[in-house]
Computed example of a mutant assay.
Amino acid sequence: MSARVDFIPAAADVARAGTRLADHDWAAFAAAMDGHGAAVLPGVLSAQECRALAALYPHEAHFRSHIRMARHGFGRGEYRYFRYPLPDLLGGLRSAFWPHLAGLANDWNARMGLARRYPDQHADFLRQCHDAGQTRPTPLLLQYGPGDYNCLHQDLYGDLVFPMQVAILLSEPGRDFTGGEFVLTEQRPRMQSRVEVVPLCQGDAVVFAVHNRPVSGSRGSYRVTMRHGVSRIREGQRHVAGIIFHDAA
């Protein structure tokens, strides 16, 4: 097993990423999430941070499991789930995103008639997950090569599910890879699926609905079903960091 690599040792680097996150227009973000079920936050990570995080992929000591998608019918490509403790930068971002998402998630659940409410601190939600038997960390690092893709899916993992998750593009489109667009589909009742392609630059984060989201109708809000995936890589290699806020059973 390869040795664990500590790639961002300075607390200042984690703080800078948190500051960049805090500086975004969160009112515009909430409007985009309500309108489309996804929103892009540009420049959450620097190019150097992206390269350093992607460079962890070969080092098995950071990860609890390795999934090859073709073996399970998920598509082509592979990913690895991090083990605890998470790399400082990834764990710091997971905590830093939470206060900006939890209130919107509570509003969504209220509009969809769901009783679940989320606490102010992510650590408190993780305790709920662990008390329910969901103890395995879910942040992950994905790697795609030529011809690889990710089928449309939802990342649920247990009874406790936070309704939003984050993907951060670590590779540079047009230089490191071509193709590989992030794709969302939305299925409304009695309607055909709507597809949206979300363009990303290196370091951009996309926040998106995991499972359902509310949409306003003539008789109040109703639920639509969301799925996400990645189109076929034409050339090169694409790395993505995924931040899922609930742990797995």
Rank of each mutant, 00 (worst) to 15 (best):
R4H: 02
V5H: 14
A15E: 15
R16E: 14
T19W: 00
R20W: 00
A22M: 01
D23P: 03
A28Q: 07
F29R: 05
A30R: 13
M33F: 05
M33A: 11
D34Q: 13
D34F: 04
H36G: 11
A39D: 00
L41Q: 01
P42K: 05
G43K: 11
A52R: 15
L53S: 09
Y57F: 15
Y57V: 11
P58L: 09
P58Q: 09
E60L: 12
A61N: 10
H62W: 08
S65C: 06
H66V: 03
R68A: 11
R71V: 00
R71L: 01
G73Y: 12
G77N: 07
F82E: 02
R83K: 14
D88R: 15
G92K: 04
R94T: 01
F97T: 06
D107K: 14
M112G: 13
G113N: 10
R116K: 13
H122Y: 08
H122F: 12
D124R: 03
F125N: 07
Q134W: 07
Q134K: 06
T138L: 08
L140C: 10
L140P: 07
L140T: 04
L142D: 05
P146A: 15
D148C: 09
C151L: 08
C151Y: 06
L152D: 09
H153E: 09
L160T: 02
L160F: 05
V161D: 07
M164T: 06
M164E: 00
I168Q: 02
E172Q: 15
G174I: 05
F177E: 06
T178R: 10
G179R: 06
T185K: 06
E186A: 07
Q192T: 06
S193Q: 12
S193I: 01
E196P: 00
E196F: 06
V198P: 03
P199H: 03
L200Y: 03
Q202T: 05
D204I: 02
V206N: 01
H211K: 11
H211W: 00
G217R: 09
G217Y: 12
G220M: 13
S221I: 05
Y222N: 13
R223C: 02
R227N: 11
R227K: 15
H228A: 10
H228Y: 13
I233K: 10
E235A: 14
Q237V: 08
H239W: 00
H239S: 12
H246S: 13
A249F: 04
